[in-house]
Amino acid sequence: MRTRHPFTLLTLAAALPTLAWLLPAPAGALGTAAVAFGLAAAAGVRRVLVPAVVTAAPFWLFLFVLHDLPTTLAIGLRITTMVAGFVWLAAVLAPDRLVEAMVARGWSVTVAYVFAATLSAVPLFRARARRIVEAQRCRGLSPRGSVAKRLRALRALALPLLLSALHEVDERALALETRGLRSGARRTPLAPPPDPALERAARWALLLVCIAALVGRLV
């Protein structure tokens, strides 16, 4: 599936939970959950299927505690579809291919930028936050004491992270500008992923199925 067009992967991942909520419970959601697990298993049992099952399991536990069996089954299968579908998507969707697809399709370069830059900034700042926490632990930060004391400790951890991040915004803006990133610019796609007619047809078909399910639900 990794070689499929990114838009096809996104459409499929969006259609599965949509159908799970629209089709009659529990049979509809059972079907979509089965499809989602099938995709996850095909993408890799240990890398994709197992994390999907592990993520979905706690929901079943809480549902079972809070609700009766038919409700548990209906909501549980929906959530399972959604979890398995997204864990699968995160595993097979390559961000660079998605960005290229967006640019090739004539999306604004700024939309593609915001999207890609967010994906690369998140791990960067997570790592930075962990470093700050580690450094403060070495200087005696501990998760004990009164709430007021812990709030002050939280402020001491968060403030440097936020201030350095805002300082960085300035430098990022200057660097982007000098390298020609402008709203409305026509960017050259570097390696646009191929989009065969069959896949385009499949995307439209999925959309129609979802609309049909919505109509069926409302009528």
Binding site: V114, F125, R126, L181
Partner: peptide, 13 residues
């Protein structure tokens, strides 16, 4: 534009 990715990363970090 440069603020958006940084702000998202802050929320998640």
């Amino acid at each position: 534009l440069a603020l958006i990715p940084v702000a998202v990363a802050i929320s998640l970090a």
